[in-house]
Write a protein that binds this DNA or RNA. Structure first.
Length: 800
DNA sequence: TCATACCGGGG
DNA sequence: GTGTACGGTATGA
């Protein structure tokens, strides 16, 4: 009762419980866990290594040892696939050594130069997957069938080190959380090589004894594994973290891996431990934030806090102080390290679902799917499996014919303050257009991508429905939500797959991608026209959504009716929804606006309104002023301005609030070299504070003091004992100028030029000709030729 | 000033 | 034997 499309989606082999696969030559080692008993079994499977070629020429030198599939005398066999794709020959052999050597030898003869490696061959003429993927594609198996996330045996470990550089710094502590949820802290008994080596040995023993399927940490691949690998090599400790083979971590090339060795080689790698899956929660966080874009940062502490999984009494220690604190208060560092692994475990469960679910579909290892980009990392392997299952030849990669890729529409119709604002948008516009108009890659003769997108959309609805029925917090709920999120991920990546530049994806098709965006612009324009025809004032339209203001007499029902009417005019499958209602909006520039909700919440969007380096007093001013502005309290705006100026004058604002957070990007040596030519505030501030050494990347807070010199703000936990330094000796006039020229100008669109000048006039030089502030009202200005991303320039002229 | 190069994270 | 996120900031012409 399974169709071929089902097989494209899930594979076809029902073997349950696979938690890891390792393949070499013609042998795949498969670790499986039984859901109800938790028992782990290890199985050895034989499989026939295979690859795809565009020609058989390179096999002919074998003579009688090569033949069609089924030829009893042949060591290397081949089968011709259907269709016109370039990769028409499915070639296989008893073991991969024979297979590869045959091809390399043939290519060497054909090309007249020595070919040592498959990667030296024209990539359009061959497709050879990693051994595990060959096995999974050929067998139709996938990870985790009939398993839920909580069935996995997961272990988290976190290194505490004396610094970030494994060439000099040491591991002095490791916190470990086992599959049973219990945690322990391992410590070095001493500060020498022997003590650190002993610590690493104990860590390895703990991991071997816990025997987890999955090892997790935050930035595991970017910090802990490379650090551990380096220290273990240096100290000659065998790092036997896997379930198979000799000790030592294996490497795989990975774009987002680390650059190994001190050479400038481009090669970046990630580590592997055969039999276990090494999962970095940082990848899950990035994947999550890619769609939500709501996280304040991607660090463990920030994310855990934001997602509500940090204990209230959780221990925090600034990174560069950890070893320092350890020497005086080791117990505090033990708590800190334990909190880290607990948070990682919770975070992995909370955000790791999509990767877990992807591994139930795609023929790749779980750890690969966890760090893969969705287009090349997930969709491509699914398409390869679909074509092979159908016995159809795959097309070669095709580089673009030079057609430029055209993007989405972005219109700014009006700037200033609008009231009664509605946001209407289309969920998943691009995949909906692909489905509605059957826009797929031209070379996809099977129509596999569109078929998959259709099925993903269906399966997502199924998963969502099942998740709703399941008990909150239950493994079932987690599984269904994970599946739904995974489906959303692949659906939303289908367009990116088409549009992938270069020849990244096998079926990339700029023409199809451009057709999607063209339809998208058409839909957006239609939405705008039809909404405007119903009497609304358009403000901003971007890709798949529109902000508009409705007439004063409209009720919420009128708003919904207008959106519904327009929705009915859109193409099938394109669903327009009322996404949000707001009391008011300050439209500043494309993608830069403020929204005031009917519940009073103020939302600021875009660089103009939120930037990590902005001085806190300026941000606070902006929030307060915009809050008044959006209820048309211009007098209030004026007062906020005057209050802020006065607070600066009286030094009522703290030093911290006028300071700016910056990253040091030069070493002390580099700065000293350029210092004579150009003095830079942050470094001068470091020197002035008597700090002569720092590391590139360190973040500090600096401000300008009344002598016009850079000065440092010491933050509370720089030093356990002393309170925050707050001398309030900042350069008042400088910060008043900054207030007006950098912050107040962001309200300029809300006023006429004269009114803006009046509201933000220098309080010390009142003009006789100013209109009374109470007569001033905000404005919304229609932009005649609405401005798009390409032709946005500056704010209106300097008020003053 | 504008374009491009780089970063995010970890102790 | 991998992959083109994306939006901000730092830098160099």
């Amino acid at each position: 009762m399974t169709s071929i499309e089902d097989e494209w989606l899930w594979g076809w082999d029902a073997t349950p419980g696979i938690v890891s696969v390792w393949a070499e030559n013609a042998r795949a080692i498969v670790w499986r866990r039984t859901a109800d008993t938790g028992v782990l079994v290890r199985e050895e499977e034989r499989f026939r290594p295979w690859l795809l070629l565009d020609r058989l020429d390179d096999l002919l030198h074998l003579g009688a040892a090569v033949g069609r599939d089924g030829d009893p005398d042949a060591q290397v066999t081949h089968r011709e696939l259907d269709g016109g794709g370039a990769l028409r020959y499915l070639v296989s052999a008893r073991n991969s050594q024979l297979l590869i050597n045959t091809v390399l030898k043939g290519a060497t003869q054909r090309l007249g130069r020595h070919i040592r490696h498959v990667r030296e061959l024209d990539e359009d003429g061959i497709l050879m997957l990693q051994p595990e993927e060959q096995y999974l594609v050929a067998s139709g198996r996938c990870y985790f069938r009939d398993l839920s996330f909580d069935d996995l045996h997961r272990l988290q470990f976190d290194l505490e080190t004396t610094g970030l550089d494994p060439a000099h710094d040491r591991i002095f502590m490791v916190s470990v959380r086992g599959p049973d949820g219990g945690s322990q802290v391992l410590e070095a008994h001493g500060t020498d090589d022997a003590a650190e080596a002993d610590l690493i040995r104990r860590l390895v023993a703990v991991i071997q004894s816990a025997d987890p399927d999955v090892i997790e940490n935050h930035n595991l691949h970017g910090f802990d594994l490379p650090f551990l690998d380096r220290r273990a090599r240096k100290l000659r400790v065998p790092l036997a973290l896997g379930r198979f083979g000799p000790p030592g971590l294996r490497q795989r090339g990975a774009r987002r891996g680390i650059a190994l060795g001190d050479g400038d080689s481009r090669r970046r790698v990630r580590f592997m431990a055969p039999g276990r899956e090494l999962i970095d929660t940082l990848d899950a966080v990035r994947r999550y934030d890619q769609t939500t874009r709501e996280l304040p940062g991607h660090g463990l502490k920030a994310v855990a806090k934001y997602l509500g999984i940090a204990r209230p009494e959780r221990e925090y220690i600034r990174g560069d102080l950890i070893y320092h604190v350890y020497r005086s208060d080791p117990e505090r560092v033990r708590r800190y390290a334990t909190d880290d692994v607990d948070e990682v475990a919770a975070l992995a469960r909370m955000l790791g679902g999509p990767s877990f679910a992807l591994a139930q579909m795609a023929p790749r290892r779980y750890e690969r799917l966890a760090d893969a980009g969705a287009a090349t990392g997930v969709i491509d392997p699914l398409l390869v499996r679909a074509y092979l299952r159908s016995g159809t030849a795959l097309p070669a990669h095709e580089s673009s014919d030079g057609t430029p890729h055209s993007g989405a529409a972005l219109h700014l119709f009006a700037a200033g303050v609008a009231h009664r604002v509605v946001k209407a948008d289309v969920a998943s516009l691009y995949p909906s257009l692909m489905r509605a108009y059957r826009i797929g890659p031209e070379r996809d003769t099977l129509g596999a991508l569109l078929s998959l997108v259709d099925r993903w959309v269906e399966q997502r609805l199924v998963a969502k429905a099942k998740a709703r029925i399941a008990a909150p917090g239950s493994p079932e709920r987690h599984s269904h939500e994970a599946m739904s999120a995974a489906m959303k991920l692949v659906v939303n990546s289908a367009y990116g797959y088409l549009a992938a530049g270069g020849d990244l994806t096998r079926f990339a098709d700029v023409h199809a991608a451009n057709e999607v965006t063209r339809r998208g612009r058409e839909v957006l324009d239609l939405m705008c026209r039809e909404l405007a025809a119903r009497g609304v004032t358009l403000i901003e339209a971007d890709t798949d959504g529109v902000y508009f203001a409705v007439p004063i007499a409209w009720t919420e029902a009128d708003e919904r009716r207008a959106v519904a009417e327009v929705a009915a005019l859109l193409p099938p499958l394109v669903q327009l929804e009322l996404e949000g209602r707001y009391a008011a909006m300050l439209s500043h520039e494309p993608k830069n606006y403020a929204l005031l909700g009917y519940d009073g919440t103020l939302l600021l969007r875009g660089v103009a309104f939120r930037s990590s380096r902005a001085e806190p007093f300026g941000e606070k001013f902006l929030r307060r002023a915009i809050g008044r502005l959006l209820i048309d309290d211009v007098v209030g705006v004026h007062e906020v301005y005057l209050t802020t100026v006065s607070a600066l004058r009286h030094r009522d604002i703290s030093t911290h609030d006028v300071s700016s957070r910056v990253r040091l990007t030069k070493t002390p040596e580099q700065y000293l070299e350029s210092r004579e030519r150009r003095r830079e505030l942050p470094y001068e501030a470091m020197f002035a504070a008597g700090r002569k050494s720092w590391s590139v990347g360190d973040r500090i807070r600096v401000y300008r003091n009344s002598a016009g010199e850079g000065a440092l703000v010491l933050e509370a936990d720089d030093d356990g004992e002393s309170a925050q330094m707050d001398p309030r000796n900042y350069d008042i006039e400088h910060y008043i100028r900054l207030l007006r020229d950098s912050f107040a100008v962001r309200l300029a669109r809300a006023f006429t030029q004269e009114d803006f000048a009046a509201v933000f006039a220098d309080p010390d030089q009142p003009s006789l000709f100013q209109p009374p502030i109470s007569d001033i009202h905000t404005v919304l200005t229609a932009l005649p030729h609405h401005r798009t991303a390409g032709d946005v320039h500056d704010d209106p002229g300097d008020p003053g």
